[in-house]
Design a protein around this nucleic acid. Structure first.
Lengths: 324, 324
DNA sequence: CTAGGTGCAAATAATTTGCAGAGGC
DNA sequence: GCCTCTGCAAATTATTTGCACCTAG
């Protein structure tokens, strides 16, 4: 089920001996889902071995935190809880005050804002905590939702793919629209080609999405884990339609270059921020594909410029301006 | 300095007697800035009266929380701290791990995202905590920044005014630009009038801003307290320039109506969310002014329609569409 | 007079620590 | 044999409570 456990035997923070007890505690901890308090863990351990003392559990938990196996979280209950730390390191929590369960989510949007706030105060962030307290759907309605927790890795991959697909789709639509508007035949051809490529790439992403869904039939109905608007918005707003009409092939290529460059940078930037996981992989692969496409366009552009000289360069299509 | 203290004598949660001790503790608490731990408060109290017991301080703190004078906050130190609760109720914290001071900020942007996340899970939010841990500027650079903390009320007012000004400015610019583009003389006149009114309103806001600055000379250099992008962006994106050229007076009025309506709703919505304060006042007054202006425009529009019948109504200017 | 408020000391609750013995390398 | 881990019990820390006493209304 779980992708890869860290190799426990290798983890020895500031030295540490292999010991039956410690290994036992770590194993019980890793077998659990969710956020355990020290006491929960003691109870679980006691279930299979009476002779382990509370102090040892506390000491082992501390060791796990140092080793990077566990993370200590404070839900304001007056005691700490511990979560597996191979999960996303910068996730946030929804905490139900009724059933005291907690749900994790990722929000690059919130992260971004947090960074802005910190920057405005020249504050160096080492960790940020976002906790939303309230009542969960189940506790409010009484119904039991099928969606168990955990399995965030697949969820993350699913959401990463959804974002990639949304981006690609908006790209495809943009180029298609551009192709319709553009009067210049060569310009139109460029947009048509671009639209076609986006469509193709979109197809591949969707296929991958379906493959992912097959791994877990309930995957699609699970709540969103990664909240991230940035991606699908704005990357393809480039050039009001008014400008499109008179666009020639060179200018069309330049527009394509800007869009692909934006997309590449965006996915690279955010992909790099995530922890190793399939989702991160998807972001980085997507960034790579955009990069490849971008390089291709750049080569085409250069070839075109070489062939034509500077004669037909439009006023609004300088290679670097507003590339962001 | 501080605007208005709550009338302590009136505050009696679930009944409660006036008592010298309690009043004394409350007064000492209210005299302090920042976030006190129970122990800090005990020390302060002991400074002026040896005979007050720790238990009483704890009991009084609990009473203050119930009475709404204080708010209990958890900075993950293993004990609680208490802050005055006449401050903004939904503020967040930057917490320096070195000097263990904390700085407050407001972010409607983050609040908005938090609400979205909760909505996606059908989670009913009762409280949300955002804490950014790290190192503050002073601790990192060694320099002492003049900006003491506290005084959030003035800061909030300052930031509210800045946002109002930014909005008004973007409105003025938008109408000025529109006036330049519009070919129809009557349409142009409408935009010119709008631009003029915005300019005037802008002037009044700026004057008020300067008045505010006079109340505290260091006010302008203090770090941002309210983070809120929403306002200045998007409200005036209405109608690509392309469309402006052919706009007549009726259509121009309609564009103005949409912009003012957007602005009014926006400031009303967010203004209502804040706690009583000068800043809230500014938001609501601004919303009101926009409303008045809006009503005026609507009346003008109706009069125009009456005079002209439906003959000249343009295709893109239906009164309600996209009013958001 | 009586419901609260107050002080003191004891109780909790989560977590840490000192120390002596056990166990891995 | 040394160094670390472990168990147990005692210590610590923040906070709460029981109870007898005191005080305002």
């Amino acid at each position: 089920m779980l992708t890869t456990f860290p190799d426990i035997s290798r983890l020895k923070p500031a030295g540490g001996k292999r010991s039956g007890k410690r290994e036992q505690i770590v194993n019980v901890f890793l077998r659990q889902e969710g956020h355990l308090s020290a006491d929960d863990l003691v109870d679980l351990i006691r279930g299979e071995d009476q002779r382990i003392s509370r102090a040892t559990v506390y000491r082992t938990l501390q060791w796990m935190v140092d080793a990077g196996i566990a993370r200590k979280v404070d839900f304001g209950e007056g005691r700490f809880r511990f979560e597996h730390s191979y999960r996303q390191p910068r996730h946030f929590h929804l905490i139900c005050k009724t059933c005291s369960r907690s749900f994790e989510f990722l929000s690059s949007d919130i992260e971004g804002l947090v960074e802005e706030v910190a920057a405005a105060r020249s504050f160096t962030v080492s960790q940020s905590v976002v906790q939303i307290y309230g009542t969960c759907d189940e506790c409010r309605t009484g119904r039991t939702t099928s969606s168990q927790d955990g399995q965030t890795d697949l969820l993350f991959a699913r959401d990463a793919l959804r974002i990639a697909i949304a981006t690609e789709r908006s790209g495809a639509e943009f180029y298609t629209r551009a192709a319709k508007i553009t009067r210049d035949a060569r310009g139109r051809k460029v947009f048509q080609d671009l639209a076609h490529e986006e469509q193709e790439h979109l197809g591949r992403l969707e296929e991958r999405y379906h493959e992912l869904l097959e791994r877990d039939p309930k995957l699609e109905s699970r709540p969103t884990f990664l909240f991230f608007k940035g991606a699908a918005h704005g990357l393809f707003a480039e050039g009001a339609e008014r400008l499109m009409k008179g666009v020639n092939d060179q200018q069309a290529l330049m527009i394509g270059i800007r869009c692909e460059r934006g997309s590449h940078r965006f996915f690279k930037k955010y992909g790099e921020r995530f922890e190793d996981s399939e989702g991160k992989q998807i972001f980085l692969e997507f960034a790579d594909e955009e990069r490849t496409h971008l390089d291709l366009l750049v080569r085409e552009y250069r070839a075109l410029v070489k062939r034509q000289g500077r004669t037909r360069r439009g006023p609004s299509a300088s290679p670097r301006a507003g590339a962001r």
